[in-house]
Design a protein around this nucleic acid. Structure first.
Lengths: 215, 215
DNA sequence: GTCCCTTCTTACTTACCAGTAAGATTACTG
DNA sequence: CAGTAATCTTACTGGTAAGTAAGAAGGGAC
């Protein structure tokens, strides 16, 4: 990221908020590509077009910088979910819209996804906890959809525990497909979402009709 | 890990192979609990009941030590799969046996699982590549089972691409459930395996009978 | 008992990088 | 056009942990 220069060749000054976002952009990229430890503050600063003390002035420390990245990207992901979900829709429609939004977001922000999914959980507290909280919210959303579906059919002897396990499996399948999708950039995110709907929802459908797999 | 002492109070010497395994045990534990970077070679050595230069003498460097951990644990995981699979069984039985072995292994070796699933992929090459290779083998196994099932029913227009996506989703669901299971140590691994069989196989069953989810 | 190979330790060097002190420069404000 | 409140830099310090040099000591072979 070359630094903007004015006519006299001197470096242009930018307001704090703009610089902070540039720093976060640079940090997300570095953390995603090199990993938390291998990414040096000097490199982040250089990529942001700024000197190192500026990063410390605005973001505090390497830990706080990483946390700020995680919070920003986690917020975006949750917003993408929330923005697509309409409580009035049927459960499968809610899941469909949420998944589509998710795969679109991941396709457009691979580095963010790597930071959230691969880097943050591996580097202990407080990073892992922050991502775990986000993931818990997503799993709760999935569990709620499954639960709605169960109740609407009156089928079930499923406990909260059972539903939680299913939600974890569903979210894990989504995460894995997100990784798979980054290796197939040609695929439309909506197609990926359809794949997961079929894999997961059809399985649930079978389950909820009392069709159980036995050893 | 206190060092073994003989009657005179002097430290007991052990043959190289035994020490190496102790070092790897200690390293897996440290890497899993503290993370790759936060785990220091001094701590690993102390936990193994040995001084740091011994670790360097036998295992080479921190990178090689981590790689050795990954290779050993990945090998065990693949062996656990291979040992349970009988080609003569029906596809669902093969998957069932493999999943049960997998969840048993994870329940008994949480640290190994954390190293393979959480630490190794986050710290770049050559670690990520080593785990990716193992994961590719597992996904190929899953894809093969799905494919067998498809062919045996003669149902399908599924491409290799489609099958690969399903296999990725299935494996991701398994990984996520493995994490979930470590938070529920009371649950029998076989029960966890049954959960996944129901979630995944019932979904596939529906798919293969031509029952497709549509937006 | 004594030779000698393997196991094992203490005590050090060195490189890297997070974090900072001190001050220069720009541009807004009255 | 001063005064001043931001933005921004160069040049440094210090702590931490990877990696190593040099040699001590157990224990099997004969």
């Amino acid at each position: 990221m070359d630094r903007v220069r004015n006519v006299t060749g001197k470096t242009k000054r930018l307001p704090r908020y703009v610089r902070e976002q540039q720093m976060l952009d640079a940090a997300v990229q570095m953390f995603a590509r090199r990993g938390y430890h291998a990414a040096s503050m000097d490199e982040v600063a250089e990529l942001a077009g700024v000197s190192k003390p500026m990063v410390y002035l605005y973001l505090g420390s390497k830990e706080e910088l990483f946390l700020a990245c995680i919070r920003r990207e986690a917020g975006r992901l949750l917003d993408a979910f929330a923005g697509q979900v309409n409580q009035a829709d049927a459960p499968d429609q809610q899941l469909w819209h949420a998944l589509r939004a998710f795969f679109v977001l991941v396709a457009e922000n691979r580095d963010s996804w790597r930071v959230l999914h691969q880097q943050a959980p591996a580097h202990g507290e407080p990073f892992a906890g922050e991502v775990a909280a986000m993931r818990t919210a997503i799993i709760a959303f999935a569990a709620d959809l499954i639960d709605q579906n169960i109740r609407s059919r009156g089928v079930s002897e499923a406990t909260e525990h059972d539903v939680s396990a299913l939600a974890h499996a569903l979210v894990g399948a989504g995460e894995s497909l997100a990784d798979w999708a980054t290796e197939h950039p040609d695929e439309d995110p909506a197609t990926t979402a359809r794949r997961l709907m079929n894999f997961a929802w059809m399985g649930l459908d079978n389950l909820l009709h009392g069709s159980i797999w036995r050893p």
